[in-house]
């Protein structure tokens, strides 16, 4: 460690992340422990893949994950992660992955809640927060080191007044931070007014922007802001190449 009062990093699972945030003593990269991070950028630049990778790497290290899908359903989450050979089935079975699905109520199929799979509705933030409360407790009891993903704010913005989405985000980040978790929230740049976008950035501890070629650290606690190129491969995001 060496330096005092620096928040330790947790590995994101994204190769080359040290090009974005680096512990100068160990050379390792990661996001500061127990902080919240916003990943934003134009549509389809790999923000969700970032989330899958962050979640999956945590699961590999026995860190449970509270995952909120607000842009797609559980079925898509399983399909899309499988495209990268990340299989969630085992983690669902051993209750390391807790999913709050805010969209599948629109799918027309009647789905059932389980211990670690909760349905909610994207236009009912009160119910969403009830599930976040239950989910946080569940993963916290599994391990005090856990991760959480909120992917993404885009659809919530289409279904709720902007200000309400901001309120929900505040309540969510507070809940995760108090429980000691690290959270990633994604947002599609340009889908809301600029003042709302800057409010989003204020709520979180770290801000990363992905633009399809470059990933840059716009805000981070305790570490230097860096930027680097990245690409998306069949193994996920790779930073610092090319």
């Amino acid at each position: 460690m060496g330096r005092d009062n620096v928040i330790p990093l947790i590995e994101t699972g994204i190769p080359g992340f040290e090009n974005i945030i680096q512990d100068e003593d160990t050379g390792m990269g990661g996001v500061p422990e127990n902080t919240t991070s916003l990943i934003y950028g134009p549509p389809n630049v790999g923000k969700s893949i970032f989330c899958y990778q962050f979640m999956y790497n945590g699961l590999l290290k026995n860190e449970p994950c509270l995952y909120i899908t607000a842009d797609y359903g559980m079925k898509q989450l399983e399909q899309r992660t499988m495209d990268f050979d990340w299989f969630l089935q085992n983690y669902t079975t051993n209750e390391m992955l807790y999913v709050i699905d805010a969209l599948s109520n629109f799918s027309g199929a009647k789905k059932q809640d389980t211990n670690t799979y909760k349905l909610t509705a994207v236009h009912n933030p009160t119910d969403l927060m009830v599930k976040v409360g239950l989910g946080t407790r569940f993963v916290f009891q599994k391990s005090q080191k856990f991760r959480s993903v909120f992917d993404s704010l885009t659809i919530p913005f289409a279904f709720n007044p902007d200000k309400l989405v901001i309120r929900v985000l505040k309540a969510y980040t507070k809940r995760i931070k108090e429980a000691g978790g690290a959270a990633i929230i994604t947002h599609t740049e340009g889908s809301v007014d600029e003042n709302i976008e800057s409010l989003l950035k204020d709520i979180v501890d770290n801000v990363f922007r992905m633009d399809g070629n470059k990933i840059s650290t716009e805000k981070v606690v305790d570490y230097k802001k860096l930027e680097s190129r990245y690409k998306i491969t069949d193994k996920g995001i790779l930073i610092g190449m090319g």
Partner: peptide
């Protein structure tokens, strides 16, 4: 609106 257009691209899988 351009914001809505951005949302559209985010809702789908392929563009």
């Amino acid at each position: 609106d351009v914001k809505v257009e951005t949302m559209l691209k985010a809702v789908v899988d392929n563009v």
